[in-house]
Design a protein around this nucleic acid. Sequence first.
DNA 1: CAATGTATTATACGCTCGACTAACCGGTCA
DNA 2: TGACCGGTTAGTCGAGCGTATAATACATTG
Lengths: 212, 212
Amino acid sequence: MARAWEERQVTEARQLATVALMDAAERLLYEAGYAGVTTRAVAEAAGVNHGLVHYYFGSMEELLTQTLQRFVDQLAEALEALYADPTLTFAEKWRLGAQFWVDEPTSRFPKILLELLAMGWNMPALRARLTEVHARFRGIFEHHFGQALRDYGLDQDEFPLKVIVGAVTSFQLGLIVEGLSSVHENHQELLDWIQRWIDGLEAHRQPRAPDG
Amino acid sequence: MARAWEERQVTEARQLATVALMDAAERLLYEAGYAGVTTRAVAEAAGVNHGLVHYYFGSMEELLTQTLQRFVDQLAEALEALYADPTLTFAEKWRLGAQFWVDEPTSRFPKILLELLAMGWNMPALRARLTEVHARFRGIFEHHFGQALRDYGLDQDEFPLKVIVGAVTSFQLGLIVEGLSSVHENHQELLDWIQRWIDGLEAHRQPRAPDG
DNA sequence: CAATGTATTATACGCTCGACTAACCGGTCA
DNA sequence: TGACCGGTTAGTCGAGCGTATAATACATTG
């Protein structure tokens, strides 16, 4: 038989509570890790009755799934917006990309993202979604880094796009994991070194079209 | 008042059960994640009464702490043994280092390590230990990679040791995290690219002393 | 063999979990 | 007015948790 909550019309109050619950789930992921995201904790943090979690979402897993979806959409949009900005050079975009994980209001994203990833390690259904998410982000990087490689006139044999993208995604993830473990040694040196390399490429860039 | 279990002499049976419990804790970390490591689950997996967890270790946290200690000691020894082997070139060591996470019997290490790290994100006491652990591993890398840089005659300004070590630790961690999320794209290309680079350095190595 | 003290087991306690549901509340419409 | 109904609340359920302790098995000693 059909579950009533699935087809019921969405009232404004319900919309507010739903958003509050997902906000609370993110906050608890950040503050306590995924083990701290329980029905009652999430309801209390959202200021709603704990029965509503089941009433609105059907299960805890569904709440988490929708929270994940909303979170990665937000993340992808921010990333797309950054790299799509035509007023910035690639070097500037890279610099802002590094800042992204540190500056407000997105400084909580690393913890939330990694908690979601860690959940996925032991929940095949969630992991499958996260694998898709990763592909989506990889696609963004591939597109914009491929463009940058061409703009910089880099030899595609010497610096294959796959290698660049693989290095960027994995080492960024690694930096985040180390940061969450209170490990920061060598990070600034590494980031500065990469920035200098990219700035150097930018300085010797093949001019394509005159701008400004 | 003094807790009896702290000062009691260790019998052989107790030693066996203690090891079995830590083995079981590692296995559960691998199979179910840290949320699956409960008193009863760990005791059942070890084939001992669940009361013994408290009797032997005093608390669940202490069992986990000792399991962490044993695990990282094992990991550090394996890594030290690999890099200390005088019959191998650095390029060969690097190749074996990459295989280490994939081959038996150490292929379960990445999951166990990352589960422990994830636990630490929300347990300050554990995180502090993990920060130390990371420093220990970073020290190993610094020593052997510094040696390799000198052997290869690489310019220390162009490739600072801190940058190399920072890149190696973070990108390895990132590869592991991606692997746990069923993401493998670009990994082989990246690893092959690095291996070719190191092999190239090895081929043009400054001879120091004749060997073999 | 009996007595003793420790190692181990079985059970109990107080608590929280996710899931579920009966009861209630306030607005709507006959 | 009063029956109705969806949204919300409060409370229950069985399970499992970490911890603690009573009860038992067992080895050792006299």
